[in-house]
Design a protein around this nucleic acid. Structure first.
Length: 879
RNA sequence: GGGCGCGUAGCUCAGUGGGAGAGCACUCGCCUUACAAGCGAGGGGUCGCAGGUUCGAAACCUGCCGCGCCCA
């Protein structure tokens, strides 16, 4: 360098081919393509390696990658990549579900833009149209998964509507039907008047909404009874009033009839245990066709069910309210009742729980209709038992409580949907009322009067088969033999009921009691930096694609994995993602430094007795970290994996090992050779350990460092106990203490970092680091004592080490006094705490001996510190 | 209404019986030949409140307060 041009921040490469900063955009796509080309993601059922299988929770074909996917995929990818490195035949199987309602809605909206409805096209043409839509615009998420780095076996991509999976659906439907675990019944179900379909219980979201509570008097005089309702319009369909059998207020009315206002109908007053006498007046109106609880009461008392609304929730009762929808009918009915002098009280607003369609948020209308159901009793029992008896583990284990609460109280599952997009129910009805369930290899009945059920199955019905339908079931394929049961299911705790319990039920049933997965690893929800749920209306949604653009896929992944404590929600913020980007850059530069200094992985790692204490120390630390990371991975403790590696890489390798190695490397000779080999080894292992979480940057660096083909095929590191060296760790700890103490003195004295100071070190031999005086001087920028050396300050470090410094007479006495006073206060506090414990006879008598001994040691250390500090203070000029 | 969970530094979170931790933020000093996306040093907490168990409690028990989620 011949002039003053500052090259520090430019991106010049320094002979090693690496730029001064990591640019993920230049690496990621290229690396992903090379992985796919290399076939590294694929899995072979003929392999004799042990299998490791994850099936992807199939994203919705209409969806795109949001932060929740990015999170979940990061975890799965990390598990999968590690297992592959460990020598498993690892399969991560991708695919999507057909998302009945959502997809139909998308295509219907497109049609609506042309002024068409699906009915204009007819069923067959409409379904064709949906397939066409899927081919053209479906599955955007698959491309986004590539950007994230998902190591999925693309050759096995599956879709719930594919032929094979459809065959699986029909097969299990028939089997369940024949076993009487599927039945058709007239029941009250959740109905969406906008989607015009039935919904299962869990597709209904409840929220506390403002409504009204209207109290209405039925009957007259001493034969009157007041009921309160939030849905006045349903009184048109009332067929009884119910009271609690023990309620003294109404005992005389039980068994009698009252006149239902506006209708002239007379309805009975019945006694039912399920009425809460504390709520309202203790009397409830009963509308069996429009309320699930009322339906139950109706069943128990043989009451008629009057359906008063059509599928769009429009009143169909002849009279003044006919043709009004439920929200128009409500005030109209209340007005008419008021007119008739029937309203006793009105409360507005009145907050109460209201169910909404999970897909479109429309208020659900309970509706009596003929639907198909899965009888969940025996299936749910088996699903619960598989966890209870330990065949399936839920991680974290606490979450099993939620699972049991669900499977042990499961209602029958309404599986029919009044849609066209989905698996059509394989049941045919005959002219004489016949009903025939048709298996995949059966001939469907044909001829006059035969027709197939119009409805399709709930999307979750096919998703419930996912862990085995994707492997070829019902055929007995090599894949199924090799890769089932899957190893671990990674999913959010919010989906435990929707999907996990259903896969368990169907998996155990279809696979003769063999569970669909060995472990259910649950994660939480991604939230914003203040722990708030991300929502469009709140404006706090973060787009993972945006982060990947700006900080890289690795930084995005590391941010998510680093926050991943099992079962807990993950807050994320842009600042943290920046921090992750910085970490990737740190690794980049550490490797760059290593390459510039000839780090290598060639040849055997020298035996420990040929290595310096610094080399032995970092190798020892590496073993501890390797063991720790391995252990934490086994327990899905991704945050702890990341924490351990971040700390090791940054604080130990970069801040200490690299700095300590600089003088050795520049010194040349065999010592430098050995350190080059150790540095190469440590980075090689570090990059391997990090690869599952941050695959791109580690691949780029590992190849540059080792010249290998891909880190994906490098064996997963195993801790070598023989390299653990407690003495080396102790010595380094002492060395770090000395250096830190000198740096602290320098900072307190306001000495510039570049200013070298003469110093004499004594007592290093006390802790066995007398051989490292040069290193200590280099890190703390101390020169050997000159001829005219005069100590102006003395630092006393624990362990009897003293550093005499010659600051040319200009030491800041006040600053030094303050520093020592602070040290003394800390030591005094420590000594006092220890003394208090030791003075307590009960403590000495009852606490375990090692604990007592430790406190004694701490006390004597604190006392020694106090003595040294006092001496230092004494030695200060009194000015 | 029923159930589950949480409350630890300014923020977000680890820590489950024996020295209160991390990341970020903050303060001070630095372009120090890998990295300013950096380096060195530092400040900051009655561990929600009140009782109890224990030689010893952030952790275990009870109650209360506050917050969240699921179910009805």
């Amino acid at each position: 360098m011949t002039d003053a041009t500052d090259t520090r921040t430019t991106d010049s490469t320094a002979g090693d081919g690496l730029t001064a900063q990591y640019h993920p955009g230049e690496v990621e796509q290229r690396r992903y393509e090379s992985w796919v080309r290399g076939g590294y993601f694929e899995a072979d059922p003929a392999s004799d390696k042990p299998p490791f299988t994850i099936v992807i929770p199939p994203p919705n074909v209409t969806g795109s990658l949001h932060m929740g996917h990015a999170f979940e995929h990061t975890l799965m990818d990390a598990l999968n990549r590690r297992r592959r490195m460990q020598g498993y035949e690892a399969l991560w199987l991708p695919g999507m579900d057909h998302a009945g309602i959502a997809t139909q809605n998308v295509v219907e909206r497109q049609l609506a833009a042309q002024g068409l409805s699906r009915h204009d096209l007819g069923r067959e043409k409409f379904v064709e149209k949906v397939w066409q839509w899927k081919a053209e615009s479906g599955g955007a998420i698959l491309g986004q998964m590539r950007r994230l780095g998902d190591a999925v076996a693309w050759s096995r991509e599956r879709f719930t509507m594919d032929d094979g999976l459809s065959r699986a659906v029909q097969t299990i439907f028939k089997r369940l039907y024949d076993d009487e675990l599927i039945y058709r019944a007239n029941r009250i179900i959740n109905w969406c008047p906008r989607c015009l379909t039935a919904l299962s219980d869990i597709e209904v979201e409840h929220s506390d909404d403002d409504g009204e509570l209207v109290s209405i008097r039925y009957g007259d005089g001493d034969h009157a009874i007041v009921v309160a309702t939030t849905r006045a319009e349903t009184m048109l369909g009332d067929t009884a009033v119910a009271v609690h059998p023990d309620d003294e207020r109404y005992r005389h009315l039980i068994g009698t009839e009252v006149e239902l206002p506006l209708t002239g109908r007379r309805i009975p007053i019945v006694a039912d245990e399920h009425v809460d006498p504390e709520f309202g007046t203790g009397a409830v109106k009963v509308t069996p066709a429009h309320d699930p609880n009322d339906f139950e009461i109706g069943q128990r008392h043989n009451l008629p069910s009057l359906t008063i609304m059509d599928e769009r929730a429009v009143v169909t009762v002849p009279g003044p309210f006919e043709g009004l929808d439920r929200y128009e009918a409500r005030p109209a009915v209340v007005a008419a009742l008021r007119e008739a002098g029937r309203i006793v009280a009105e409360k507005r607003p009145y907050q109460h729980s209201v169910g909404h369609c999970a897909r479109c948020k429309t208020t659900v209308e309970p509706r009596l209709s003929l639907q198909w159901f899965v009888r969940t009793g025996p299936l749910a029992k088996a699903a619960g038992d598989a966890v209870r008896d330990g065949r399936v583990a839920i991680e974290p284990a606490d979450m099993a409580k939620r699972y049991f609460a669900w499977v042990d109280n499961m209602h029958d599952w309404c599986i029919s949907r009044q849609l066209w997009w989905g698996h059509r129910i394989p049941v045919w009805y005959g002219p004489a009322g016949e009903m025939v369930c048709v298996g995949p290899d059966d001939e469907a009945p044909s001829g006059d009067g035969w027709h197939q059920d119009e409805d399709v199955l709930d999307t979750w019905f096919s998703s419930a088969l996912w862990p085995f339908s994707t492997l070829g079931w019902p055929e007995q394929t090599p894949d199924l033999a090799k890769f089932y049961p899957t190893s671990v299911l990674v999913t959010g705790y919010d989906i435990l009921f929707f999907w996990v319990a259903r896969m368990m039920m169907f998996g155990l049933y279809a696979m003769d009691g063999r569970q669909p997965f060995d472990v259910i690893a649950l994660h939480g929800m991604v939230r914003d930096e203040h722990g708030k749920k991300m929502s469009k209306s709140f404006g706090n949604v973060v787009d993972p694609l945006d982060w990947m653009d700006r900080f890289g896929a690795d930084a995005t992944r590391f941010t998510l994995a680093r926050g991943a404590n099992p079962g807990s929600d993950v807050p994320v913020s842009e600042e943290w993602c920046q921090g992750s980007r910085n970490f990737c850059n740190k690794l980049w530069n550490a490797t760059r430094f290593a390459l510039m200094n000839g780090a290598t992985v060639a040849g055997e790692l020298p035996p420990s007795d040929e290595l310096s204490v610094v080399d032995r120390w970092i190798l020892s630390r590496l073993q501890h970290v390797t063991a720790e990371v391995d252990e934490q991975f086994e327990h899905y403790e991704f945050a702890k994996v990341c924490e351990a590696l971040y700390h090791f890489a940054w604080d130990e390798v970069c801040d200490w090992y690299v700095e300590l190695s600089k003088p050795v490397l520049s010194g040349g000779g065999p010592a430098a050779e050995r350190t080059r080999r150790v540095l190469g080894h440590v980075l090689d292992r570090l990059l391997r350990l990090l690869h599952p979480v941050i695959p791109f940057v580690t691949e780029e660096l590992w190849i540059a460092l080792t010249g290998g083909e891909t880190v994906m095929r490098a064996p997963w590191p195993v801790a070598e106990d023989g390299r653990i060296d407690d003495d080396a760790e102790e010595e380094l700890l002492a060395l770090q203490k000395v250096v830190t103490e000198v740096r602290r003195f320098r900072a307190d004295q306001g000495l510039r970092p570049t200013q070298r100071v003469s110093a004499a070190l004594t007592g290093l031999g006390n802790v066995g680091i007398d051989g490292h005086e040069t290193l200590i001087r280099s890190l703390s920028r101390l020169d050997p004592p000159a001829a005219d050396f005069t100590a102006t300050a003395t630092l006393a470090v624990t362990g009897g080490i003293a550093v005499d410094l010659d600051t040319r007479g200009t030491i800041d006495v006040a600053a030094e006094r303050a520093r020592l006073a602070k040290d003394r206060a800390a030591a005094e506090k420590e000594a006092a705490q220890c003394r208090a414990k030791l003075d307590n006879d009960a403590f000495v008598a009852k606490a375990p001996e090692p604990v007592v001994a430790k406190i004694r040691d701490r006390l004597s250390a604190a006392e020694a510190d106090l003595a040294r500090i006092a001496a230092s203070l004494e030695a200060l000029p009194t000015s």
